[in-house]
Amino acid sequence: MTCVQSEVLQTVVDEFANLSSETTSVFIFNENGETIASDRVTTEDQTKSVVTSFTNLSLQSDIIGGLENLSIQGATSQIQIAAIENLYLAMVSSREADVKIIDSLTHVLVPTIVKLLNQQLTKEDQLAEESLEIPKEPEIELKEEEAPVDEIPQELEIEATEEEEPVDDAVLPEEESTMDDSSSEEESSSEPLLPEPPINQLMVEKIKGFRVPADTVRVDSEVIAKWTELYDEKELLISIQTLEGKETTCKFRPLKDSRSNAKGIIQIPERILQILEVTKGQLVMVSPEIDTSGER
């Protein structure tokens, strides 16, 4: 019996006075003789006395199959003790009390509530058991799935690097960028000596042409030079973030433009512009990100 269930039964017991004004005392006790709920009128001594005598009688009642219900009629008052599943409801009332009300309270209302509470308890137990079992299943599934998950990206990465300049089909899903983010986080935790990635603000330009790779941006060569210097020979990707918070990670190359005013420029293919929801002339924040996909 949980605290919540005891509270529910206490509420029921408290309501007995409203339901039957002839009721003078109500309490509920369990098989161990513990009082689960009691009205304010009934004293501890009264409940103890009843529970003790009832338990003693119960021990002597094997010949009738144990003790389920006890009804004592006095000249002016009466006592009913009814077994309700694993609990006992004791009620003292005047002989003038409406028998129908007493019967519906002791044999219908309270038993229904107790049954519902017990069903709820059973469900909670089942859920608890299930939740205890749940962690075991994913472990097995993960082990089974680990192999194909590892294999597939490797193949994809190889394909991506082999296709140096795919014209039409190159797709840069956001999921991939998030995967890279998480893996880069893992890497950074395992390699604390790496420097903090510098953030540069660049102006967007659109790359045009038929043979433009849809997954590669072109960045000011001075910026790339600084990144290469910082990260030595590590394979890098570029993380692009808009002022609105849109973010993606992709490959990059130095700008082909030899214009002197091409500094601070990032040239982005149409596909990535759509992902980032930016247009020519807008500013984006870029930073290097170590490419961990090649290490797998």
Partner: peptide
Amino acid sequence: HIRESSFEIGKPFNLSDVESVLVEGKNA
């Protein structure tokens, strides 16, 4: 036992004049 226990159960509630007691078990 029924008579003795009913007396004990009724005593704290001033129910000393027991007229009748009905005891129900699983079988009888």
